[in-house]
Computed example of a mutant assay.
Amino acid sequence: MCVIEPAPVVETRRLALRSPGAQDVSRLATLANDAAIARMTLRMPHPFGVADAEEFVLRVATQDPARARTFLIEHENHGPVGVIGLFEDADPAPEVGYWIARPFWGRGYATEALQGAMVWASKAWKRRALTAGHFSDNPASGRVLEKAGFLYTGEVRKGFSRARNAEAETRRMVWLA
Rank of each mutant, 00 (worst) to 15 (best):
Met1Phe: 01
Cys2Gly: 13
Cys2Trp: 05
Val3Cys: 12
Pro8Asp: 00
Pro8Gly: 00
Val9Lys: 08
Val10Tyr: 04
Arg14Gln: 12
Ala16Gly: 02
Ala16Val: 12
Arg18Asn: 01
Pro20Tyr: 02
Gly21Lys: 14
Asp24Glu: 01
Val25Tyr: 09
Thr30Tyr: 01
Leu31Thr: 01
Asn33Leu: 08
Asn33Lys: 04
Asp34Tyr: 07
Ala38Trp: 10
Met40Phe: 00
Arg43Ser: 05
Arg43Pro: 08
Met44Asp: 08
Pro47Tyr: 02
Phe48Val: 09
Ala51Ser: 12
Ala51Arg: 12
Asp52Gln: 01
Ala53Tyr: 00
Glu54Tyr: 10
Phe56Ile: 00
Phe56Trp: 15
Val57Ile: 04
Val57Phe: 04
Arg59Lys: 04
Val60Pro: 08
Val60Tyr: 15
Thr62Asp: 00
Gln63Asp: 09
Gln63Pro: 13
Asp64Gly: 12
Ala68His: 07
Thr70Arg: 07
Leu72Ile: 13
Glu74Thr: 12
His75Met: 02
His78Met: 07
His78Glu: 04
His78Gln: 08
Gly79Glu: 02
Pro80Ala: 02
Pro80Phe: 00
Val83Glu: 05
Asp89Phe: 08
Ala90Gln: 09
Ala93Ser: 13
Gly97Arg: 01
Tyr98Met: 10
Trp99Met: 05
Phe104Leu: 06
Phe104Met: 13
Phe104Ile: 12
Gly106Arg: 04
Gly106Thr: 09
Gly108Val: 03
Tyr109Ser: 01
Ala110Glu: 02
Ala110Lys: 07
Thr111Asp: 03
Ala113Gln: 11
Leu114Trp: 13
Leu114Lys: 13
Gln115Thr: 05
Ala117Asp: 12
Val119Asp: 06
Ala121Asp: 02
Ala121Ser: 14
Lys123Cys: 01
Trp125Ile: 11
Arg128Thr: 15
Ala129Asp: 11
Leu130Cys: 13
Leu130Arg: 11
Gly133Ile: 15
His134Arg: 09
His134Phe: 15
Ser136Asn: 02
Asn138Val: 02
Arg143Gln: 10
Val144Gly: 13
Val144Trp: 03
Leu145Met: 11
Leu145Arg: 03
Glu146Asp: 13
Leu151Tyr: 11
Tyr152His: 15
Thr153Asn: 08
Glu155Pro: 14
Val156Tyr: 13
Arg157Ala: 10
Arg157Thr: 06
Phe160Trp: 10
Ala163Phe: 06
Ala166Cys: 12
Ala166Glu: 03
Ala166Ser: 10
Glu167Lys: 03
Thr170Gln: 06
Arg171Glu: 10
Val174His: 07
Val174Asp: 02
Trp175Pro: 08
